[in-house]
Design a binder for these strands. Structure first.
Lengths: 181, 181
DNA sequence: TTATAGTTTCAATAATTTCTGAAATTACAC
DNA sequence: GTGTAATTTCAGAAATTATTGAAACTATAA
């Protein structure tokens, strides 16, 4: 498969951004390629298009599958494995949020929970525990919120998002909006 | 400054998680230390407590300041620079979200905007552009939403969060809740 | 079975990132 | 100004992470 200028730009960008997003360059490119591909691709096509080794593609796809950003499928009469990226952009959004939460938030939440069970031995520990409690409460609240909101249908979520800050008015909350900084 | 077992655990955890969060181990530890410290610390104290080189602390603090997760202050009669982490947990949350958006989302949004201006030359490009449009729309919507909601006071935001999915009921939206997968 | 296409593993190495110590710079007190 | 404490810079060393190619493994067709 040949990349057109437009698709190449997209793929290269995902490669560059990969490191900021916590995946590596080649995995970022592989995902971008799957995302824009009109049909599932097999590992050789991916390796050939992007110019990576076959083994790198194998490992990269494993990683993408662990993020649930790629799935495996087979075509009748072809024993190679094909990969595709989930189509529904809302599903991708949710999946990504779930995986990030599992990897980047849960471990910390769990560490905080443990730390809060300890009996502080010094003033310093007492203070530190207070800070940890604040952190724990915020993260806990945000994740519970996320859990609940995630169960809404994409349509409702979209309406809610489009409502934005106006939700506050509609609900009759009183609030002073913050200035731009 | 000596770390107690409780604070050491917290600091080491932030070091470990650092790489998943896009900062490195030592910067993660530095932030954790500042976060739980009851008073501002100078660079030597940080270096000594965590066992890093003085120059590493200098670079680390620069990075934390670029994330607005640390700020500089001076004490009368002491010419060293002291650092502290913002106290308000909501402010931290907002700051982090803003910085992540700037670094991890804006560049992609901008690439997508450019790509969507191009006239597709082939079927493949046409399809790819369609996918990019979906991605762009979702990100755009989410960031506009975030902009607006961010202007709410922490109190309102907290009420809203505690409302969770019930917001949908209160607003009279009809929606079927999604099962747990 | 066996042959072989397809996939994965893994040790070696390439590339990148992190961290340090020494030198340079800056800021302040005298 | 000069001297010194504090900070930053930066080149190289150390550590980590990414990538490859060859070998091992697996599944299927003949």
């Amino acid at each position: 498969m040949e990349l057109t200028p437009l698709t190449e730009r997209f793929v290269l960008h995902f490669g560059e951004m990969g490191s900021r997003w916590g995946i590596n360059r080649t995995v970022g490119q592989m995902y971008a390629l799957l995302f824009i591909s009109p049909q599932p691709l097999n590992a050789d096509e991916i390796a050939e298009t992007l110019g990576f080794s076959r083994s790198n593609v194998s490992m990269g796809m494993k990683e993408l599958m662990s993020w649930r950003l790629a799935r495996l499928l087979h075509r009748p009469g072809d024993r190679r494995e094909y990969f595709e990226a989930p189509k529904d952009i809302w599903e991708i959004f949710r999946t990504l949020a779930e995986e990030k939460r599992k990897r980047e938030i849960e471990p910390t939440l769990s560490m905080l929970r443990d730390a809060l069970l300890e009996v502080p031995q010094t003033d310093a520990e007492h203070h530190a525990q207070g800070r940890m409690r604040e952190m724990h409460e915020l993260i806990e609240m945000a994740t519970v919120w996320f859990d609940e909101v995630q169960r809404l249908s994409p349509e409702t979520l979209e309406s809610l998002m489009r409502l934005g800050a106006k939700v506050q008015k509609v609900l009759g909350f009183t609030d002073k909006l913050r200035g731009k900084d």
